[in-house]
């Protein structure tokens, strides 16, 4: 799959605008390097070629990328938000790949400041406040919904067990598994003894 050129150019322009505001994000480890971001599942490869002061975004690269980071979009998003990188695969120059990861995590999008250039400070502040309020309300609503659903399924309809019951059950299964394994080992030892004593 290839992204339309206009979208590619838009991503590149956004990236470069952010880098212009935070120029120290491009570290020497990235200068002149090309990092391939390979999105598995959607079969999309994006090449980030770094110069001293900006990045060039390509959908094809005539040479071999210095480092390749492969993963599903979800795995990349999870890694981008600072969570685990277990589902990602790194090939090539790991130092460059790490520098690229640091760059992605270091980008601080001050969208309110960006918006204020077009709308003025007052409007941008009000839009920011509204969005912050919506986000807070959304978080609270999500948490309340999760708690209500849990109460309904666990307490009222009793279709799901409560956490303590599950943990007790899991502990019981673990103990049973350990007992079975111990018992199997004991039986095996007895078999060996019977075999060696010739009984």
């Amino acid at each position: 799959m290839k992204l339309p050129g206009v979208i590619l150019a838009g991503i590149e322009a956004t990236f470069n605008r952010l880098l212009m505001e935070q120029p120290d994000l491009i570290c020497p480890a990235l200068d002149g390097r090309c990092i391939c971001l390979n999105l598995t599942g959607v079969d999309l490869a994006l090449f980030f070629r770094f110069t001293a002061d900006h990045v060039i975004l390509l959908d094809e690269f005539e040479q071999c990328a210095d480092a390749t980071i492969s993963g599903t979009p979800l795995a990349l998003a999870s890694a981008g938000s600072g969570n685990n990188t277990r589902d990602l695969r790194f090939d090539g120059d790991l130092q460059a790949a790490r520098a690229f990861g640091d760059l992605l995590q270091g980008i601080d999008l001050d969208w309110e400041e960006w918006l204020s250039r077009y709308t003025g400070d007052a409007i941008a502040f009000h839009i920011g406040e509204t969005i912050r309020y919506c986000r807070q309300w959304g978080g609270q609503a999500k948490q309340a919904f999760a708690e209500d659903l849990r109460d309904y399924l666990q307490t009222e309809t009793r279709q799901l067990p409560v956490r303590d019951e599950v943990e007790q059950f899991v502990r019981g299964v673990d103990e049973l598994r350990a007992d079975v394994e111990r018992f199997a080992m004991r039986v095996q030892r007895l078999h060996h003894r019977i075999g060696s004593d010739g009984l």
């Binding site: 339309p4 050129g5 206009v6 590619l8 150019a9 070629r49 060039i56 390509l58 959908d59 094809e60 690269f61 005539e62």
Partner: peptide
């Protein structure tokens, strides 16, 4: 590319009626 440019990329506009080519 033959002229020596690297990282060449083109961007189609208006359904390819116009294109912007960029090379470094």
């Amino acid at each position: 590319q033959e002229a020596g440019f690297e990282s060449c990329q083109f961007y189609n506009l208006a359904g390819g009626i116009v294109a912007v080519h960029r090379g470094y």
